[in-house]
């Protein structure tokens, strides 16, 4: 026990005495959470052009209706179709509405399909609302449909994933490269205690990160936690288990820091792109959706969303938590076996 505490204390001192690491732990979340939401703060602003070769009276009406909608940044009237298309070629227009006596025709820039479909939907809603079957949409769990709240949850998980795995992997590999580990082997320190000490210390660091991130989101973006705070912490502690295990595995299999960095980069990119941070499961091909069973980041994001937006209880989360624990046990066991031999 005394040795375990000593190991944790050693890690603590190493962290506190390294200014850069301290900066990483304290400032990285704040920087990421402060800057990245700027990339999606505004709602999508469309730039539309209206073309009417016949000069009918409807044009001014259309321009008026569209420009009243805050989703349209600019609505211009361009009489010549060729000129409008040239503007679109140069990337200055998102949609062109041709109006003629035969009806409307809309041309959209398809290079960003989500945006194009959204533009189509919004135009339809603004101009042709009255002709439709009445449908009322209600959004539950994030009723303002606030994109920054939605993204903040996954950003918190992203920050923890980046910081957690980078810290533990580089910590282990650096001790090996600098020969420190060699020296520790000749002390009374058991390998298991050494392994466990690091693990416990990094769990605390990650917990600190989570609380810092959540506090920042609460104060700056007004993100409300619908579930209980204790549940959120429990979910996260369970999430650290496979996450830190992953960091250990990468460390155990790389000899130099350079190799660790490359492995870390490739693994982290795959994990973050294959989870539901930027897309959703039902749009992935099946083999890609199936990788979620071995992807801790997926479970981290889904369970955080469940707690923060839906206020889920531990009973609702039990299957996810159980699976994360299984993943964690496997990863840590692999890492430890390899670690002891190395």
């Amino acid at each position: 026990m005394r040795l375990l505490i000593a190991t944790i204390y050693k890690e603590y001192l190493q962290l506190v005495r390294n200014k850069v690491l301290l900066f990483l732990v304290m400032a990285c979340p704040v920087i990421l959470l402060g800057i990245i939401p700027l990339s999606f703060d505004g709602s999508t602003r469309f730039r539309a052009a209206i073309c009417d070769s016949e000069g009918s009276y409807r044009v001014s009406e259309l321009v008026g209706e569209l420009s009243l909608n805050p989703l349209f940044e600019s609505v211009v009237f361009i009489p010549v179709p060729e000129e409008a298309e040239a503007q679109m070629d140069a990337g200055r227009l998102d949609l062109i509405i041709y109006s003629s006596s035969a009806g409307f025709q809309i041309i959209l820039d398809g290079t960003f399909p989500r945006r194009a479909l959204n533009a189509l939907h919004v135009t339809d809603k603004t101009l042709f609302e009255k002709n439709q079957v009445p449908v009322v949409f209600h959004t539950m769990f994030n009723s303002g449909r606030r994109y920054n709240h939605y993204s903040l949850i996954s950003l918190i998980v992203l920050v923890i994933t980046l910081v957690g795995t980078a810290l533990i992997t580089l910590n282990v590999v650096r001790e090996r490269e600098s020969g420190l580990e060699e020296q520790l082997r000749s002390t009374v320190l058991d390998r298991f205690v050494y392994f466990l000490g690091k693990f416990i210390f990094f769990v605390f660091i990650c917990l600190f990160e989570v609380v810092l991130c959540l506090l920042f989101c609460r104060l700056v973006y007004g993100l409300e936690n619908q579930g209980s705070f204790a549940n959120y912490l429990i979910v996260n502690v369970v999430f650290f288990f496979p996450l830190l295990g992953l960091g250990y595995v990468i460390a155990a299999f790389s000899r130099t820091q350079l190799q660790a960095v490359y492995m870390l980069t490739i693994v982290l990119i795959l994990l973050t792109m294959l989870c539901t941070m930027f897309t959703h499961l039902s749009s992935m091909p099946q083999w890609a959706a199936a990788t979620r069973f071995v992807n801790p980041v997926y479970y981290g994001i889904e369970s955080s969303r469940m707690v923060i937006f839906k206020g889920a209880t531990l009973a609702n989360l039990a299957p996810m938590l159980g699976w994360m624990l299984c993943l964690g046990v496997v990863l840590n066991a692999v890492a430890f076996v390899r670690f002891r031999k190395a």
Partner: peptide
């Protein structure tokens, strides 16, 4: 009117659902 309840905890998905359904 029909009432449709969407899941706001996954906005990307619910946005796509909203567009597809209304069409």
């Amino acid at each position: 009117p029909l009432q449709l309840f969407l899941d706001g905890s996954d906005l990307v998905l619910s946005e796509a659902v909203m567009q597809t359904l209304s069409v």
